[in-house]
C-alpha cells in the first residue's frame, strides 16, 4: 500500500487556484521530493496533506486516512517540521522533547527511550539542559527533526527543512533523512535546492498549482533531456544567450552563473562531425569576446527544470 495517495487534489482561494487537480502517489519508505518555486502551491499542498487545510475538491489518503474525512487520524500518523524550527527557544532541549513527546501521547519508558534516540540523532547527548535558543542553527534543525519523528510516525513532512543552513549542516541533515527513511518512515520533503533533490528517490515538480513532471532524478533527466547539453563558459553570457536563441540547433538555453547551458535539438556522440560544426558556429557567433570554452556535460536536475519551465512559458 502506498503511504500517500493523492487524487485530483484542488484548492481554491476565492477565484485563485493554488493547487490545480494534482495526483501522485508516494511509496512506503520513499524519500519523496516536492519541488516548485515559491507560490507554486507547495505549502498549500503540504497543509492539505497534514490535515489542517480542507481541499476544495479531490482527496488524498495519507497513511490510509482521508485528509478530508478524517484529518484527526492523519495528524496522529504524521510528523511535521518546517524551516522555522518550531521549538521553544526559552525551553531546554529536554523540555522541548518532553513537550513534543507529550502532545503525541508518549509517556514513561517509551518517552524516555525516544528522547534519548532524538538526542542521539541530533548530536545533543549530554546537552539536554541547554537552552534551545543558544544552539546553532544546524543543531536546532536536527533537534526539530528528532522532535518531529519522536513518536515514530509513518510519514514525516519536511517543509523546506534546510532553509538558511550551511552546506555541511545540510549534508548531515540529509544523512539523517536517509537513516529515517531506511527505518521505514516515508519522508516527504520540499526544497528549493535542486542538488538536494538528487538525494530523493522520486520527485514531482509543480508550477502554478499544476503538476508538470514526476519520476526519479535519473528518469527525469532521461525523459526530458535526452539530447546533448553543452556548457559554454565565456564572458558576456547574456549577450551570447540572445544570439543563441534563434539558432536552428538550439532547443533551449539558460544561464548558469558564469556559464551557459545549451540543450541541442538532438543527441550527438562527442566525435560527431555535426557537433563539431555546431561548436564552430557557436565560436563564430560569440565573436570577439575572448576565450570561449565549450564542453559536453551530463544534465543536472536544474537543467531539467529550467527546460520544463521554459517550455511552459
Amino acid at each position: 500500500m502506498n503511504s500517500i495517495e493523492v487524487s485530483n487534489l484542488t484548492k481554491k482561494f476565492g477565484s485563485f487556484t493554488s493547487v490545480n487537480d494534482i495526483s501522485f502517489s508516494v511509496g512506503k519508505g520513499e524519500i519523496f521530493g516536492f519541488l516548485g518555486a515559491n507560490g507554486a502551491g507547495k505549502s498549500t499542498t503540504i497543509k492539505m496533506l497534514c490535515g489542517i487545510l480542507e481541499p476544495t475538491s479531490g482527496d488524498a489518503m495519507v497513511s490510509g486516512f482521508s485528509i478530508s474525512k478524517d484529518p484527526e487520524s492523519v495528524k496522529r500518523n504524521i510528523g511535521y517540521m518546517s524551516q522555522k524550527f518550531s521549538l521553544y527557544g526559552d525551553l531546554t532541549v529536554n523540555e522541548n522533547l518532553n513537550f513534543f513527546g507529550g502532545i503525541y501521547g508518549l509517556k514513561n519508558e517509551r518517552l524516555k527511550e525516544r528522547k534519548s534516540w532524538a538526542l542521539k540523532i541530533s548530536g545533543l547527548e549530554n546537552k539536554e539542559n541547554t537552552l534551545t535558543s543558544t544552539l546553532s542553527v544546524g543543531y536546532k534543525q536536527r533537534l526539530a527533526l528528532g522532535a518531529a519523528v519522536m513518536h515514530e510516525p509513518k510519514i514525516v513532512f519536511l517543509d523546506e527543512p534546510t532553509g538558511g543552513v550551511d552546506p555541511i549542516s545540510r549534508r548531515k541533515f540529509w544523512d539523517l533523512i536517509h537513516d529515517i527513511s531506511e527505518s521505514g518512515t516515508t519522508v516527504f520533503v520540499t526544497t528549493h535546492y535542486l542538488d538536494e533533490a538528487e538525494f530523493c528517490n522520486r520527485i514531482i515538480l509543480i508550477n502554478a498549482g499544476i503538476l508538470i513532471a514526476s519520476g526519479s532524478p535519473a528518469e527525469l533527466k532521461k525523459e526530458y533531456i535526452d539530447n546533448t547539453v553543452l556548457e559554454i563558459t565565456c564572458r558576456e553570457t547574456f549577450a551570447v544567450i540572445e544570439k543563441l536563441i534563434p539558432e536552428d540547433f538550439t532547443q533551449s538555453v539558460s544561464a548558469f552563473g558564469n556559464s551557459i547551458h545549451l540543450i541541442l535539438k538532438s543527441k550527438f556522440s562527442p566525435q560527431d562531425e555535426e557537433l563539431k560544426i555546431i561548436k564552430e558556429r557557436i565560436r563564430k557567433l560569440t565573436g570577439d569576446i575572448g576565450e570561449v570554452k565549450i564542453e559536453i556535460i551530463v544534465p543536472s536536475l536544474e537543467d531539467v527544470f529550467l527546460n520544463l519551465l521554459e517550455k511552459r512559458e
Binding site: R76, Y80, S82, S86, F100, G105
Partner: peptide
C-alpha cells in the same frame, strides 16, 4: 510570532 503554533496545529492537539 515564533510559529511554534504551527507545530501544535499539525499535531493531534485540538
Amino acid at each position: 510570532e515564533f510559529s511554534t503554533i504551527e507545530q501544535i496545529r499539525v499535531s493531534p492537539v485540538t
